[in-house]
Design a protein around this nucleic acid. Structure first.
Lengths: 165, 165
DNA sequence: TTGCTCCTCACGTCACGTGAGGTGGC
DNA sequence: TTGCTCCTCACGTCACGTGAGGTGGC
């Protein structure tokens, strides 16, 4: 009966449990369903710090790193950038409350996202209008200086498209 | 009476009209309300080609370049990337119709924008929910391993935030 | 001479993606 | 030995932004 059980993949449980509960980079990566080089990137920018390196140079992370990683995903899900998340970590390290700046950031970012949303809705509408109009138009080979009559006859603004900055 | 007219800024009319109607980089830039280095960038990636250089190395553009520039803005306004616009120019130079690929691109891009729109709406909604919830919550100084209780108690997913790729 | 315009590097932004080239672990 | 995992550079993505350091034009 034991034989019929699928083999438990060794890497899905914390390896080296005896050696003080440390995680390998791939275990951390799998916890948030990302490739390992994303974790390496976070280390490089100082967002995540391995508890130590093995004799072979391999990164070993503790439970706190896993918690930080979950925090990163949660904060990104609320629109925070990695830089902003780094600031929050900084506050926490200094035992100062990050809450005031967290509130400021999300206020600013919410307004900004609302603006992006407007732009994207407008873009989508322009695209849909163009698609509809183009259905009644033939393809054409460019002659004498024109480039693509589909686009050149579109009602999209030729200046200040709204996608700005 | 002539005296009372505001001075016509020299740079707003094609300078060197005698020298075959060429435009300076800044005249081109002003036509689309962009800083000159954007035009320089377009030249560098080969999207815009000056008709010639002056003896001093200054770029001189013809009316065709102005037309290309307007085309770029129009196409960007429909969600085309600079790479895609370069392809369209390539078709036009070879006197092949760019229309089929233009239709393909906008089909693909419209679906993609619709997806982005969904993600952005979801993000905005998460942010607004968080803002509402946080109004009833006090600021707190992190203790014993926690980082920011506002974010850590949010209902945002800690994995697969929806902002992906 | 002053203030503006022009030029070419060259590095920065944001959050990774994608190899190259080599080593460690089971 | 094989296949996987790990490592460090280092360059690419996208559409510019931002200087540095110097020159030309009126």
């Amino acid at each position: 009966m034991m034989k019929m059980l699928p083999a438990i993949p060794r890497n899905r449980t914390p390896a080296n449990v005896g050696s003080s509960e440390l995680y390998s980079i791939i275990q951390l990566a799998r916890a948030v369903d990302e490739p390992a080089h994303v974790i390496r990137y976070y280390c490089r920018i100082g967002l995540l710090v391995p508890q130590r390196r093995g004799a072979n140079g391999y990164r070993r992370f503790d439970a706190q790193a896993l918690r930080h990683l979950h925090f990163i995903r949660r904060a990104q899900g609320l629109g925070f950038s990695l830089n902003e998340i780094a600031e929050i970590f900084q506050h926490a390290r200094n035992e100062r409350s990050p809450c005031p700046s967290v509130r400021e950031i999300i206020d600013r970012r919410t307004a900004q996202i609302a603006g992006q949303l407007e732009n994207l809705v407008a873009l989508h509408e322009r695209m849909r209008r163009a698609l509809r109009r183009w259905r009644r138009m033939p393809d054409r080979t460019p002659t004498g200086g024109d480039i693509c009559h589909l686009i050149e006859t579109s009602d999209a603004p030729s200046v200040q498209s709204g996608r700005k900055r």
